[in-house]
Simulated assay, not measured.
Amino acid sequence: MTPDERRAIEADVTRLIHAYTWANDDADWHACAALYTKDALFRRPSGGDPVRGRDAILEGFLARPARAQRHTIANVLVDVVDENTARARSVIVLYMGNSVGDGGLPVQDAKSPLIGTFTDLVVRTDEGWRFAERIGSLDFRP
């Protein structure tokens, strides 16, 4: 693999992580789930049992109560394993709150922000780069 090919994979995986973040903040759960492989493993940073499979991941997203949220992803580090596999780590900061009835800015939740880490296994598929594993954890208690 050439250095240019490695950098291209790093950029593609970083873009996947950012696309997921924007879809999540837009509450576009179908777009979020589509970024996983059909048999992916996902665990939210807030914990709970891991969820296996794109359909189950989508079901979990659809079951979430509505909230105002904004994720910030930082310190993305991609390690290319081979031309079809990469591992990535990133820091996540989640600001959340409740929408207000008058259409104004949401009120920030007292538990916000939450700070955690995602550890990802990413694979190249016919659909493009997708999460095969996305394991979240919190770095500080709320």
Rank of each mutant, 00 (worst) to 15 (best):
F140C: 09
P65Y: 03
I135C: 08
L77W: 09
D55V: 11
R141M: 10
N24M: 12
E59W: 02
L16W: 02
V51L: 12
R15S: 12
V100D: 03
D120G: 04
Q108T: 15
N84H: 13
S99V: 02
N24C: 13
Q108M: 15
A88H: 00
R67Y: 03
R64T: 10
G47F: 12
P113Y: 00
R54W: 06
Q69E: 14
I135S: 11
D28W: 09
I92G: 13
G101K: 11
P142E: 03
F140W: 09
P113L: 00
D139C: 00
Y95N: 11
D102F: 11
Q108G: 03
A88P: 02
I9E: 12
R54N: 04
W129L: 03
W129V: 13
R130P: 02
H18R: 09
P113K: 02
D82V: 06
D26N: 14
N98Y: 00
V93A: 03
F42Q: 10
T21P: 01
A40T: 05
P113I: 00
W22E: 11
D49E: 15
Y36A: 10
R70N: 03
E59N: 10
S99I: 01
G116R: 04
A74P: 03
L77R: 14
V78E: 10
Q69T: 15
T72G: 05
D25M: 03
R43D: 03
A33S: 09
V76S: 01
N84S: 15
P113A: 00
N24D: 03
D26P: 00
T2E: 06
P50W: 01
N84F: 01
W22V: 15
V81P: 06
A110I: 03
R87L: 13
H30I: 09
A110Q: 00
A86R: 07
W22C: 02
R6S: 08
Y36T: 10
K111T: 08
R54K: 13
L114K: 13
V107C: 01
A23I: 05
R6Y: 04
R67T: 08
D39A: 14
S112K: 08
P3G: 04
W129F: 09
D139E: 10
G128S: 05
G128T: 08
Y20Q: 05
V122D: 05
G136M: 03
R43Y: 06
A110G: 01
A31M: 07
D55H: 10
D25A: 09
Y20A: 05
A63W: 03
R52H: 14
V78K: 03
P113D: 00
A27E: 10
I17L: 14
T119K: 07
N75F: 09
V93I: 15
F118K: 02
T14K: 15
V80L: 07
P45Y: 06
D109R: 07
F131A: 01
Y36I: 10
I115L: 09
T37N: 07
A19V: 02
M96C: 04
L35W: 02
D82L: 10
I57E: 04
F131R: 02
A88M: 02
M96I: 00
P106E: 04
C32N: 12
R134L: 07
V93C: 12
